[in-house]
Design a protein around this nucleic acid. Structure first.
Lengths: 240, 240
DNA sequence: TACACTTGTAGTCAATGTAACTATAATCGA
DNA sequence: TCGATTATAGTTACATTGACTACAAGTGTA
């Protein structure tokens, strides 16, 4: 099988044949920008899907675990090392990939856009942030994978404070609320949101306020890593 | 690769080489018996894992989806057709299977033990129900898969009424409560449980009561398939 | 400088759900 | 008929929530 034809994105892997050749990884990378949820898509430069957009992905090396492969691919694409990453599930329709039987393992990642920088190795093919509500047609079953990612994110965000991985280090309560509103597609009440979130002691108020706003500046917060970890493990229940 | 050596359980598949040879399926099958949660394990009859117990599994045919493969394997093993089945995730440590690089896709299933019957094709190798708290050492990474299955079941049972798939058609409120207690490993209060569950209108009281009990007979219920479906999709929130 | 406007933050109140109980009803076996 | 056992109903104190109102703190403008 000609891997070059299959997936022009996984440039680094194409040189080596030392990969599992029936299983790939595809990853939905979420970012949050000015109140809007976005995904990172790549444009395939050659092969049968030339010109079309898809989720970034690649091959698994024979000597690495699938999680390691996902981290590696993400690092290669975004330059970020400490990333929030979770496996979704495997996608395995027999016809999902037209040239041969390839099963793909879906992942989704949450990144702080401020940390993100495009790495040189990838500037060859186009890479672009798309608003989730505005993605173009995707190759293969990537629309499926994106949809499952979104559902999973919606569920996850109500059970653990993973949303923070999309926000900058310092943020206001309103930013946080807008994040939840955007992901869950609901409208919330400011005072109630505030009360609820502050009660769980996850947020640490900083000695800083917003700057450059034309109204009363809001308190900036960061989150308490200890409580964050506890809540991520134990989970909470965030009903709206 | 000699598939016979890898997994003696997937007898039916061994004859055919028309399978994806780097990916398997392994399935945790849960049953509920007299207040205890059980899993169905198989004993490998030959190969490197001879005599050891593991989760039932097998190969994926080239022309079937992975979900179809899981259903097929389950049907072959249990004789049940309409089974509750959900994919867990893929497991892919490079060394999880000693002979070659094989990635496995974990599933978990819930069955009503009354429906279960062992099929002739499988009586060759030993098949046995084990109490979840009493499983023997398992091959490969099957202990991992079982652990993830249990975690998933715990989470799922609080979000949708999937627990019913483990109960017989007709059941009492107390049986239902014991099921939740067993899965979630908590103790509950009868009156409160009753009130909470009845309020969601999921249960339909039958014109029948328990028989052959040496105390006041309890009302028998079945669940309302319409509401069941709605709740399974929409989810609920069952905190205890 | 005063005032309007915007957004942040605090507090109120009724409705709802829950945990921990107590109390009563039904049934069986002795 | 009585006592034991389990089903089912009801009570109460309490916490959480949603929908509000009110006020504070800044900005920009007349």
């Amino acid at each position: 099988m000609n891997k070059k034809a299959i997936d022009s994105v996984s440039i680094k892997e194409m040189d080596s044949e030392d990969v599992v050749d029936t299983v790939t990884i595809d990853c939905t990378i979420f970012g949050f920008n000015e109140g809007t949820l976005e995904v990172l898509l790549v444009q395939h430069a050659e092969g049968i899907s030339k010109g079309k957009w898809g989720l970034p992905g690649g091959w698994i090396r024979k000597e690495e675990s699938i999680d390691d492969a996902a981290y590696r691919l993400l690092r290669e694409l975004t330059g970020i090392d400490n990333i929030y990453l979770e496996q979704l599930k495997a996608f395995g329709s027999p016809k999902r990939f037209p040239l041969s039987r390839v099963i793909t393992i879906g992942y989704y990642a949450l990144i702080k856009k401020e940390d993100y920088r495009l790495t040189p190795g990838f500037t060859a093919s186009a890479v672009k942030w798309y608003k989730v509500k505005d993605v173009p047609e995707l190759i293969y079953d990537h629309a499926d994978i994106l949809e499952v990612s979104l559902k999973r994110l919606k569920r996850r965000v109500r059970q653990a404070p993973v949303g923070f991985n999309l926000l900058p280090e310092k943020f206001t309560l309103l930013q946080l609320m807008h994040l939840y509103e955007e992901i869950l597609e609901v409208e919330m009440d400011k005072p109630n949101f505030r009360r609820k979130f502050l009660r769980m002691k996850l947020l640490v108020p900083l000695n800083e306020k917003e700057t450059d706003v034309s109204h009363r500046a809001a308190q900036l917060y960061k989150f308490d890593p200890g409580i964050y970890e506890k809540l991520t493990e134990k989970g909470f229940n965030f009903e709206f």
